[in-house]
């Protein structure tokens, strides 16, 4: 991640980058890279194995992987149909619906957590009747973690799939229809395979976003070891007593995130 080679990379493929753009580009790159370098520099490499294998870390890493994967699955099951509906040309109110669905992208996650609490809490819009009926409330459970993560992660999936759908030639669906395929059959055999690059990159981004979710989770699900303390919450908790552990955990998250981003640009996401 050397800055010198970064500049050279900009120059050669693009050809003529205006000189005035180079300085801000370098500063911009530094702004992103320096905190990461700081993290790397401060990482207690010798203690890393110990941190990784400590009970609390293992538990929260496992919980994070489980909830992020579940949240991605929920986002796939609900988000793909949502994207298909949004991509349909001429849908009335599509603009408003799209804005509402993607608002978690810009909303502070804490506010998302508060909103979820207002809706699903023991006294909330939907939570209250459920609590009266069953004596069970969603908040402060592992399920609440999944809901919070889905809330913040699904927009990535919806946007990725919708973008891919817009690039799809609708006449291919006409062709499928003249060959006797029902809309359902066409969806599975033509639409889904053709939007796969957008679907995969959207799902990977959603997974990464869910993995890193903090604000909505701690607000809506709390910070209970074993049930709701995911890795980011573990980082936060550790920071208050043991900075070295927090940095070590952060390093793990950084590594996972980079691997995910590289994978998202790799084989699975490629078009035909």
């Amino acid at each position: 991640m050397g800055t010198a080679s970064g500049v050279a990379d900009i120059r050669s493929p693009v050809g003529r980058v205006p000189g005035l753009l180079v300085a801000p580009a370098v500063i911009g790159a530094l702004l992103m890279v320096i905190p990461l370098l700081g993290l790397v520099a401060r990482t207690p490499w010798t203690e890393l194995v110990g941190i990784l294998t400590s009970a609390g870390t293992g538990q929260s890493l496992g919980l994070s992987l489980l909830t992020a994967t579940l949240a991605t699955l929920v986002a796939l099951i609900l988000g793909v149909p949502l994207a298909v509906v949004l991509a349909r040309p001429g849908l009335p109110g599509a603009g408003l619906l799209r804005a509402l669905v993607t608002v978690p992208l810009v909303l502070p996650p804490v506010v998302g957590g508060v909103a979820l609490f207002a809706a699903r809490g023991r006294t909330g819009l939907r939570g209250a009747p459920a609590y009266e009926l069953t004596g069970w409330a969603l908040p402060f459970s592992t399920a609440a973690v999944v809901v919070a993560q889905t809330f913040v992660a699904m927009p990535f999936l919806v946007l990725g799939v919708e973008g891919a759908l817009r690039g799809l030639d609708d006449r291919l669906l006409d062709a499928a229809a003249t060959l006797g395929a029902t809309p359902w059959h066409t969806f599975w055999t033509i639409t889904l395979p053709l939007v796969r690059p957008g679907l995969v990159s959207g799902a990977v981004l959603a997974w990464a976003r869910a993995l890193g979710e903090f604000g909505a989770t701690i607000t809506f699900a709390g910070n209970f070891p074993g049930t709701t303390r995911t890795l980011p919450l573990q980082v936060y908790t550790s920071l208050q007593s043991d900075a070295a552990t927090a940095i070590g955990l952060s390093m793990i998250m950084l590594a996972v995130s980079i691997m995910v981003l590289v994978a998202a640009r790799g084989r699975w996401g490629r078009a035909w």
Binding site: D169, R171, L172, D174, A175, A176, A177, T178, L179, G180, A181, T182, I190, P193, L194, W272
Partner: peptide, 20 residues
């Protein structure tokens, strides 16, 4: 009758083969 049940095959000018 819906397109998929008409028993009519259509060959498009630009073929529209399924690219995948």
């Amino acid at each position: 009758v819906r397109a998929e049940r008409r028993g009519i095959g259509l060959v498009f000018a630009d073929h529209l083969l399924f690219p995948h």
